[in-house]
Write a protein that binds this DNA or RNA. Structure first.
Length: 183
DNA sequence: TGCACGATGAAC
DNA sequence: TTCATCGTGCAC
């Protein structure tokens, strides 16, 4: 397993979102190493993307999105779930990739299909917001042998308010994978 | 200081 | 289709 370096995240957000599919998300906590294989992502392109949190400018919450790539952007949604993103592109370009689903690989309890469930199962909460993913306790890694995948592109979920941005094919998942979220 | 609402998930 | 539940952003 090879931990992804900063340069992986410091690239076009759509490309990062697509290439994250098949990679392993690893979180070490409470003496357990939890691993999930990323099977579904969504790209949020920056302040011009009306579906992105950064479209409303730099705020306390979105500060990490405006920061350097390779950091975790974790926020609470609907008062009860957390969503996990990886920050992409150069510092100042507020873009990120939402991790929507993983396939359980190691030490995962409960369901992982959907951004809220994924965080719950992998013990990801706001304490990990702004955490550097180029680290040894919370990171993304390329497995020793990456399976070949068929990429599917669809509109993003739950962003109908974002006018024409809601129609763009910025949700990516591995075709046929049973852990991709429904809807 | 107040309030409407959301990158969700589960029940009905 | 409705509801649980609360931090955030923006209006007063």
């Amino acid at each position: 397993m090879q931990t992804l370096s900063r340069s992986f995240y410091d690239r076009d957000t759509i490309r990062v979102a697509q290439e994250l599919l098949g990679k392993y998300l690893v979180h070490v906590s409470d003496g357990a190493e939890r691993i999930g294989r990323i099977v579904e992502t969504e790209a949020y392109l920056g302040p011009h993307d009306l579906a992105a949190h950064s479209a409303r400018g730099l705020t306390a919450r979105t500060r990490v999105m405006f920061g350097p790539p390779g950091h975790a952007y974790v926020y609470m949604i609907y008062g009860m779930y957390y969503c996990m993103n990886v920050v992409t592109e150069r510092e100042g370009h507020a873009s990120a990739v939402l991790l929507r689903a993983v396939e359980p690989i190691q030490n995962i309890e409960g369901r992982t299909q959907g951004p809220g469930l994924l965080c719950q199962a992998m013990h990801i909460d706001k304490n990990l917001n702004a955490h550097d993913l180029v680290s040894d306790d919370f990171f993304v890694a390329a497995p020793d042998r990456e399976e070949r995948i068929v990429l599917v592109k669809r509109p993003r979920i739950g962003v109908d308010y974002a006018q024409h941005w809601a129609k763009r094919l910025l949700r990516f998942y591995i075709e046929g994978n049973p852990f991709v979220s429904k809807r």
